[in-house]
């Protein structure tokens, strides 16, 4: 399957990814080539096959269960924001999200 430049721009928008014009042209070419390989999936008969979302094995009842609901101390907001580009008073700071109507 070949993608148009318009489609690539649309997908980049969904992915919140800015691409330069050069990157865009390269992406049209690369994604087309890779999707052509992926299109081979249509050749194999999967009638009646259940999709496999996770590795499945019989490993006893304790696997893939939730842990006990025990109270414990979390990292804390100071540690959580320590790596943020901009933070203040234990919060992440971002550009204005909601414009106030006057």
């Amino acid at each position: 399957m070949n993608l148009t430049e318009k489609e690539v721009r649309y997908v980049a928008g969904l992915a919140n990814l800015s691409l330069s014009e050069d990157e865009l042209a390269r992406m049209v070419h690369d994604l087309g080539g890779i999707l052509s390989q992926m299109d081979r999936l249509a050749e194999i008969d999967t009638t009646g096959v259940e999709p496999m979302a996770q590795v499945l094995y019989d490993a006893g009842d304790d696997t893939a269960t939730l842990r006990e609901d025990v109270e414990r101390t979390p990292l804390g907001s100071d540690a959580a924001v320590a790596n943020a580009a901009i933070s203040a008073s234990g919060y992440f700071k971002v550009p204005l999200v909601i414009e106030r109507q006057e």
């Binding site: 992926m38 999936l41 194999i44 999967t46 096959v49 259940e50 496999m52 979302a53």
Partner: peptide
């Protein structure tokens, strides 16, 4: 489709 092929 890929999840089904993974099962195969």
């Amino acid at each position: 489709k890929a999840q089904k092929v993974r099962a195969l």
